[in-house]
Design a protein around this nucleic acid. Structure first.
Lengths: 119, 119
DNA sequence: CTTGCTGCAAAACCTTTGCAAACCT
DNA sequence: AGGTTTGCAAAGGTTTTGCAGCAAG
């Protein structure tokens, strides 16, 4: 399976449709199974943007700590955003809440330029 | 319906079980319908902690901006965490990414004291 | 020949919906 | 009566699983 085609945040169904063009007899289950494996070995990252389906993106190993997402409430498009400041926050939390932070997930919901103009 | 009983992050199913004790003939659909209404009028907040079900918590109007969550990877327990610093980040994002931020959602995954000790 | 991958269909899971019965006022 | 709310069962949407068949070593 070669899903090098896209660099975005696609759902299993969307990937299925794409892959089906190259390989019409593939099954949706195989896509899910492959995606699961790729996520497990760290090639992909699973994301939940609240639209009821899991979305996958490539994990870039040059990122020491992953980026965050800007989710447009108008068109649903997802863009990315880098920021370091949560790292220091984790230390504060660990001390203050007796909670050993392993990972974090930050999402911003709002409107992209196009959708904001259209409002 | 009186779900004053709990102050945590419960799922519809869990609330259903609780309410059923007082009122055994209630249906799960009614719980969902009521929860939807309460969320719509702002009494409850819907949360998605990645365990496949929506979890509800009371919205406290004394919070100008809502808190964030610490989710234990061991026992699944959810605790809360307050921090102001995302407010200023929103301004940066708006300028830098041409993205009008309406809301944000920050979650930390890790281990609570008990689970961390048990590891 | 044995092991692992595949596709298909069915199941699982959470949530929503249709509808008739029950409940107000 | 008229309108609303209910419970039940069925449907919905996404993801997982069982299993027989195919492929590969």
């Amino acid at each position: 399976m070669f899903l090098e085609q896209e660099d975005r945040h696609l759902s299993a169904e969307e990937l299925y449709m794409l892959v089906k063009h190259q390989n019409p007899e593939i099954g949706l289950a195989t896509v899910y199974r492959t995606l699961d494996i790729l996520a497990e070995i760290g090639v992909l990252i699973k994301n939940d943007f609240g639209d009821g389906r899991t979305r996958y993106e490539f994990s870039r190993k040059d990122e020491h700590h992953h980026h965050h997402h800007l989710i447009c409430l108008g068109c649903g498009n997802v863009s990315e955003f880098d920021d370091d400041l949560l790292e220091s926050l984790e230390a504060v939390i660990t001390k203050r809440n007796q909670f050993k932070v392993m990972d974090h997930d930050l999402k911003f919901y709002g409107y992209c330029r196009k959708c904001e103009e259209a409002r």
